[in-house]
Design a protein around this nucleic acid. Structure first.
Lengths: 336, 336
DNA sequence: CTGAAAGCGCTTACAG
DNA sequence: CTGAAAGCGCTTACAG
């Protein structure tokens, strides 16, 4: 038999209002009464129905997380950190990835319009038209994760793609004296990709190396396009002496292809990546890459979102760029 | 201004009951009326409040997923497949991993007692006392994923650890003629680990190889214990000619250590793993391992859970063991 | 400090 | 086919 607040009230000899107050730790309830009620609650193993509470309070204590389509090990850590942070505060996490079948917009609208969650963490490196309209029209607080640009009034948290890329390319230039640094770019329109590319260009410029369009190829952040990109770069007359892949997955593709073609890393060509995915430490040679503070990203996203929910007007907004850090392996030519 | 069912009813000139029926596609509503209501709904961009609906219908159309503490790339695919399957049916997914701070039992009890979800997918290779009490006492349907044994009355789905291990060890014996096959075991009490170990023992026995306790070491399913296990095995007088690691992460540890010690795989010692994690295809040499149908595991877990929820009495239960398949790389000695 | 009552936004048995 | 009303299980302003 399902036990509800009435049963507790009956057994405790008080009204349901008092039970409710006691459980919400209102100081309108006498300590004695609280204790008495708590005893009954424990006895009966009563758990208040969160759905009813949500309806009444008009808040769900649940945050929604919307993820992009492609998911990798990266995201598990992200979710884990979100869950951890949410748990600490007794909040819940509703997951929703956008699928081939449905687009981000749809997912987002449904989540935000429905009242199923009090706020949304939206990871959207590939921002689509219409998203801002939805966000700004809605009263549901949102925090954008890894989204390009600075959208006024919207909470944002992201990683420092630019500086990470800048630093690692500068490492290739200054420490190793490479002159022909190729790049396998990420997908068009992807924020992370664009910022990393900008960092690459900037490092070249600051170090007075001319940008050579033949050394820049496009990729899609996956292994296959890494293979293709690497092949393209290495089949040209002017071969690069180092290649910066915009993420580790593409660097991995480069490794694979290098092995097949008998090209030695870093002797024939140096490689650097971005993300520091778990896998990269096990590559031979260890990949030089950029570490991304993924745990921090998740837990801060939760903190800022809850702050936004609690102050309920979106007055003061959060905008933060988390630092990235280069991780030196031997794929760049460093000895270990 | 938040728009609710009353606004829609007012504008459509009908009662809220009729609006509700129309939206639930009841055939008690005349097609004309339905059309008229739908038009208003679209105009106003009305989305019924799922919380109110849940309270009224006593069902949430949400499934809870409880994950163990250690999470890896494996789990992201699992969640993704669950989300995909749930989405198809317009269900939602609430994630809850057990943390250092809280144990599985607590997480589970809260989730099941609260009415926040209609059913739970519980991945628990390391089953704890008390879990069955909770499950059998509760009316909330549960499906156990990768849990050892056959618990009467409980829906279960798992992978064929035994056969996977058996097959891969038999491959080492029959194809490569290894005689001294070591094993780096998984954690004590872990279901997957125990079944894999049983498969190993059975393959030895069937092929008339005596079990040699000095060739069996314990591990914890992580890279570090793989390193330690490998070192231990290779430092003995009688060295193994092949090692079966109970999962790929430990095989990875073996690779690392082999590299450091200058031991060649597979020439000095063959290696086989289990899981076929994404990473393993990029190891040199490619790891011979056992593929686990993780996507299937997730989507079937959802299907069976929803079936259990819908038939609401737990009459007919689902129990399924998904086949595993060996993936031949060159770490076992096969040419590629 | 406590209780009776209204309200959160829906669904659905009941009556017509 | 449609509507008035009760009910889902809580919270909280109001009155005492």
């Amino acid at each position: 038999m399902k036990i509800d607040i009435h049963k507790v009230a009956l057994k405790a000899g008080v009204s349901i209002a008092t039970v409710s107050r006691a459980l919400n730790n209102s100081d309108l309830v006498k300590p004695d009464t609280k204790a008495k009620i708590q005893k009954i609650v424990d006895e009966l193993n009563y758990i208040p129905n969160p759905i009813a509470r949500s309806l009444s309070k008009q808040s769900t204590e649940t945050i929604g997380v919307v993820l992009p389509d492609l998911v990798g090990e990266f995201f598990m850590d992200f979710i884990h950190s979100i869950d951890e942070e949410a748990y600490k505060r007794n909040w819940h996490v509703l997951i929703s990835s956008s699928h081939s079948q449905r687009n981000l917009i749809e997912t987002l609208m449904e989540l935000m319009g429905s009242g199923r969650v009090d706020g949304v963490i939206l990871m959207a490196p590939q921002i689509q038209d219409g998203i801002f309209e939805i966000i700004s029209k809605s009263k549901t607080p949102v925090i954008l994760v890894n989204t390009c640009g600075d959208f006024n009034g919207t909470n944002q948290i992201k990683i420092d793609n630019f500086k990470g890329a800048y630093d690692i390319v500068e490492h290739l230039i200054k420490v190793h004296n490479y002159k022909k640094i190729g790049m396998i770019n990420g997908p068009k329109g992807n924020c992370d990709a664009e910022e990393r590319f900008a960092g690459y260009l900037s490092a070249l410029k600051k170090n007075k190396i001319n940008r050579d369009p033949s050394l820049i190829v496009n990729g899609g952040f996956d292994v296959d396009t890494g293979c293709i990109g690497f092949t393209t770069l290495m089949n040209q007359k002017i071969k690069p002496d180092a290649i910066f892949a915009a993420n580790d997955m593409m660097a991995l593709g480069a490794y694979e292809t290098a092995k097949e073609l008998g090209i030695k890393i870093p002797d024939d060509v140096a490689i650097a990546g971005f993300d520091d995915i778990y896998l990269s430490q096990f590559l031979t040679p260890r990949l030089t890459t950029v570490h991304v503070p993924i745990y921090d990203l998740g837990s801060k996203a939760v903190k800022y979102l809850l702050a936004a929910i609690n102050r309920d007007k979106k007055r003061q907004r959060h905008f933060e760029v988390l630092p990235t850090e280069i991780v030196i392996g031997s794929s760049c030519g460093c000895k270990h």
